[in-house]
Design a binder for these strands. Structure first.
Length: 490
RNA sequence: GGCGACGUAGCCAAGUGGUAAGGCAGGGCUCUGCAAAAGCCCCAUUCGGCAGUUCAAAUCUGCCCGUCGCCUCCA
């Protein structure tokens, strides 16, 4: 089953066909690090990370570009407010963002261009737009003349006349038309600036993406394969990118497939910098398992608006446990086996591929994975009893979905005993089994040993008394054939 | 006002004409002294409402109700 993707440009789900044989080129609008990144950003980049993984899995050679718009009005304003340096502000937020992405298992882009490193390309593109009559120099900057691009609005399904009558477009005395947008903004005193033929200043938002995608993915102007971003970028950002790029191309469209991720709501409202209703990503990642966050997003279609709640986060955490248990069970069965003969059946792989081929239906693909995780016997049986092969397939699919198994999945993490453990234990049991001044671990070991001795002589009332005592101080015991283990109850 | 998305069990969510995936939570059973773990099983005659098309509708059409997004910086 071939891959089909929904294309915002045509408003249809279409067969995906690369422009250049096996070579797939993707440009995703990255971050403008003028504030902390939030979960909405994570959702978007997590999705494009998955898309990239899947395209690679399908055998394509993928080039993935994700830009950094490191100069914008907001970061300048922030620098003015705090008295800091705009570069430091931007780089600080970006560093946090990168760390969060790494934690979420998002692969590094092949190119991560900073807008300020492409000023010459930006200036050149603006010059060509002026030459060709698509842009004009005004008093406070250079503007794009929207009226010169007849198909403006095609991506977002709007028409120019309608937009012009819209009451919400800011009227600017230096623009010939309210729809026109800035390509270059002349610097006011004290603002960061770069030299340009029309006057020193900085690039407007939008032009950096046109210039950098051209430079890195499409020097010939033949278009590239996929352009992605959040749904809130469709208008005006992507519309403007098209207007800037396509007049200078050999063969429009700028990008064959335009893909947009649904926005994430928080408390039923859009997360946004301006509304301020979001929890910074680093804070959220400190509270929740990064893989559970990835899993949470896999459960919902990428184009759907999704509402984040603490409850759904907890559910995803539970689901992740199911997956880890399944993996652990498979791993145990596979141990000691030899000669892994993969490709025995690959039923799971086929099911997951079919789901992803259908416009990246992660919810269905995940359900296939979960059916396996909670019934590992079936997967092993499908591999003719070869647990090693079953494990290999399961592992590969987890990796494809970005839920790469970690060694820690195989062990129950050693819990930390609370600092006041001995004290609390003494309060419950006295010094009966608790050596005074001993380490918490020793005290616990002593109790466990005493209980095992009681069990050995079938003194179950004593055994239960000790279990209950430990329960009272928050320790849960588990008896198994291998011995007694404990964990801290939260 | 224009454009668009969504409304499926307690919660999340898949399903776009053939009789409701999956997860979380909940319940039952088996097994272990108890407990936990594990395994097995149950959990929507019904898809916001009302009409209509059809042999057949959660899926198509119309109207209505509700929630949200874009149209302004935003993933």
């Amino acid at each position: 089953m071939p891959l089909k993707l929904y294309n915002t440009r045509t408003r249809k789900t279409e067969l995906f066909t690369p422009i250049r044989d096996n070579d797939v080129r993707i440009y995703v609008c990255g971050l403008t690090p003028s504030a902390q990144a939030h979960l909405g950003h994570a959702r978007s980049f997590l999705f494009f990370d998955l898309l990239r993984r899947y395209l690679a899995h399908c055998g394509y050679q993928v080039t993935y570009v994700q830009n950094v718009t490191d100069i914008d009005d907001r970061s300048i304003q922030r620098a003015r407010e705090t008295g800091g340096d705009w570069r430091e502000i931007v780089h600080g937020y970006y560093r946090d963002f990168k760390a969060a992405m790494a934690q979420l298992g998002v692969q590094e882009p092949d190119f991560e261009p900073y807008a300020t490193n492409y000023i010459p390309q930006i200036v050149e593109m603006i010059a060509r737009l002026i030459e060709s009559g698509h842009a004009y120099v005004s008093k406070d900057g250079v503007y794009y003349r929207v009226a010169t691009f007849p198909t403006y609005g095609a991506l977002s399904n709007r028409n120019i006349a309608e937009l012009q009558s819209g009451a919400r477009i800011e009227v600017d005395e230096f623009k010939d038309d309210p729809l026109d947008f800035a390509l270059w903004k002349f610097a006011k005193p004290g603002e960061p600036q770069w030299e340009a033929p029309w006057g020193a200043g900085r690039p407007g938002w939008h032009i950096e993406c046109s210039a950098m995608s051209r430079e890195l993915l499409d020097a010939q102007g033949l278009g590239f394969d996929i352009h992605g971003g959040g749904a809130d970028l469709i208008f005006p950002h992507h519309e403007n990118e098209i207007a800037q790029s396509e007049p200078l191309m050999q063969h429009p469209p700028m990008a064959n497939v335009w893909m947009h991720g649904g926005l994430l709501l928080f408390d039923n409202r859009k997360m946004s910098k301006s509304l301020g209703n979001f929890e910074p990503l680093p804070d959220l990642l400190a509270r929740h398992d990064a893989q559970a966050i990835r899993l949470l997003f896999l459960q919902t279609g990428y184009r759907k608006v999704m509402n984040f709640t603490e409850e759904s986060m907890m559910a995803a955490t539970g689901t992740l446990q199911t997956i880890r248990k399944g993996y652990r069970a498979l791993h145990q069965r596979a141990e000691g086996r030899s000669a892994p003969t993969l490709h025995a059946t690959e039923q799971l792989t086929t099911a997951i591929r079919n789901a992803l081929d259908d416009d990246m239906n992660t919810a269905v693909s995940l359900s296939k994975l979960l059916a396996t995780a909670s019934n590992t016997d079936a997967l092993v049986a499908a591999h003719g009893g070869d647990a090693q092969a079953a494990l290999g397939e399961f592992h590969a699919m987890l990796d494809l979905l970005g839920l790469t198994p970690h060694d820690s999945w195989l062990i129950v993490p050693p819990a930390m005993l609370p600092d006041d453990f001995v004290q609390r234990l003494t309060a419950v049991l006295g010094h009966e089994h608790v050596p005074a001044g001993g380490a918490p671990e020793e005290a616990l070991a002593a109790i466990i040993e005493a209980r095992l001795a009681a069990r050995a002589r079938k003194d179950f009332s004593e055994s239960d008394r000790l279990r209950n005592a430990l329960t009272a101080v928050g320790i849960e015991l588990k008896d198994s054939k291998e011995g007694t283990t404990w964990s801290v109850v939260v």
